[in-house]
Structure formats: C-alpha cells, structure tokens
C-alpha cells in the first residue's frame, strides 16, 4: 500500500541492472558452484528484495533456468540476525544491505556467499546451532526461582542499564564469529565444547556475570571460559567488534572476562577447591 519514496542514495542510477554472483550448493557434501543473475533494480532495493526476485524466476545470466536460491531470513529490519551472509567478501545482514550503496552503477556486481564458519544447509543457508549451543556453555541466563509473582527485580542506575542494554542487543547473527580468525568451522558437535566459544558468548557471560541474580552462576561461567576453547583462545585480532552490526563492545567484554578469569584463578588458587 505504501508508495512513499525515499531519496535515491549516492546518485544510484535509476532503472539499472546489477549482477548477482551467488555461491550455490545443493546440500551438505555436494559441490559448490557460482551462478550469476542479472537483476533489474527497483527503488529501495536491498539484497533480500533481489533474492526474492531471483526466487520468483530463477534464470541465470547465460539463460539457464535453475532452482530458486535458498536463504535464511526473518525480520528484514536487522534485528533477528537470520539473513546474515557474506556479501562482497564481508559478513553482514543482507536485509540492511542496500543496492544503491553496494551497486550504484549499471552492471555492478554483488557476490553472495554463505557464512564459512558454519555448515551449509543449502545455498546461502547455514546451520548456526553451534552459536546457540555456545550460549548454553556459559549458562547465559539469569537463574530465577521461577515465573511466580515474587516482586520486582533489582534496581539499576541508568548508566548501568545503558551498558547492559547494548550487550543485550546481541541477536546471535554470527558476524563476530565469521570474521574471527580463531573461530573455525566445526561440523562435529562432539567438538563444540572444546572449540573456541566466540565473542558473542563471552560478551553474554559478561552481561550475566554483571546481573545481581545472574552473578550466582559467575563461577561456573568463568570455569567454562577458562577451559579449552574459552577466553584464552581469543587471539585479539578484534575483527569481531569491527563487524558487529549492533556495535556491541565485544573486545571490551573480552577484556572484562580476561580480568574476571584472572581474579577467579587467583581466588581459586588461594581458596582451593
């Protein structure tokens, strides 16, 4: 119903065509191959709307009819994290990837690849179960007594809320993991508990360690993070914070957990266990 117009950005050419080079794969263990599609660009187009066009009538540049491209998507407003993929070599959400910015001229090329750190399900769709599994590794939750009516939670200053809110906007998209040189593809779930946990989970551990009730599990979280695949596997390349679409201070969280594990180790040494 909406016909309102937004300004055309960066003098992107109206009525142009853009080439999409897409790395396709029919399923696990199948070979990957590039396919190219030439797409007319409407106003306000983003990668999703172009993929929708391809899905409706998938014909490659060389005239071959193919199956529709498979991809993962949800909210389309960069808040659910589903549509993350590698676009022109860098990981990001495809919904917020505007064609006017990425391909303003006739004949420009946009490449789409699935994330490389997770097993491909099909085409651009990857299985990110490990990402969620890693949240469980650090018990990223507040251990409340139950959903009963037990009064309000703890008070909090606006400054502390501001810190926690940012950490809490992590949408588990996996950008930080895709860009991390220490986080590698691990299809075998048996190894997930010893492979690098990733910045997102470390940051969540920080969030919950800082919550007055969440703190109850702080020792367990730190124990988990001190083991193999924990905080020490971070290589401080700091790509995570650069690619985080929500601008979460991930490297700050890593340093905080670094400090907490240092103190925890010292305390443990003297307290014994």
């Amino acid at each position: 119903m909406s016909t309102a117009t937004a300004p055309v950005r960066r003098n992107a050419k109206v009525g142009r065509h853009v080439f999409f080079r897409i790395l396709r794969c029919e399923g696990p263990g199948k070979p990957s191959q590039w396919q190219e599609f030439r797409i007319p660009i409407p106003e306000n187009a983003n990668v999703i709307s172009c993929l929708q066009q391809i899905a409706a009538n998938p014909v490659t540049t060389d005239g071959q009819t193919v199956t529709p491209v498979v991809w993962d998507a949800g909210c389309l407003e960069e808040v659910c994290g589903a549509c993350t993929m590698v676009i022109n070599g860098k990981v990001r959400q495809s919904c917020s990837c505007l064609i006017d910015e990425y391909a303003p001229n006739e004949g420009d090329v946009i490449t789409l690849e699935p994330m490389s750190k997770f097993p491909v399900v099909r085409d651009l769709w990857v299985d990110r179960s490990r990402l969620f599994h890693n949240l469980a590794r650090v018990k990223a939750w507040v251990p409340i007594d139950g959903t009963y009516d037990l009064g309000a939670g703890p008070k909090e200053t606006p400054a502390s809320q501001a810190t926690h809110y940012v950490l809490s906007t992590c949408m588990s998209c996996g950008c930080c993991l895709e860009a991390c040189p220490q986080f590698n593809l691990e299809p075998d779930s048996a190894n997930w508990d010893t492979a690098f946990i990733g910045a997102h989970a470390i940051s969540q551990a920080r969030l919950f360690n800082d919550h007055p009730t969440g703190r109850e599990l702080k020792d367990e979280r730190l124990d988990a993070l001190m083991g193999e695949g924990g905080i020490n596997d971070c290589g401080n390349a700091q790509n995570c914070v650069k690619v985080c679409p929500k601008h979460i201070p991930l490297t700050e969280s890593i340093a905080v957990i670094g400090r907490q594990t240092t103190m925890h180790a010292i305390a443990q040494f003297f307290r014994g266990r």
Binding site: P28, G29, P31, S32, L185, W192
Partner: peptide
C-alpha cells in the same frame, strides 16, 4: 568447483535441538 562444507550435525531424521 570447491567442495561444499559438510553438515555433520544434520543427520536425516535427527534433530538439531539444543545439545
């Protein structure tokens, strides 16, 4: 042609609920 990464956790008939 590069080989597609295999998804070991996707066993037909299995589920990938939380481990």
């Amino acid at each position: 042609m590069v080989s597609c990464r295999s998804a070991g956790l996707l066993r037909p008939g299995g589920t990938t609920g939380i481990h």
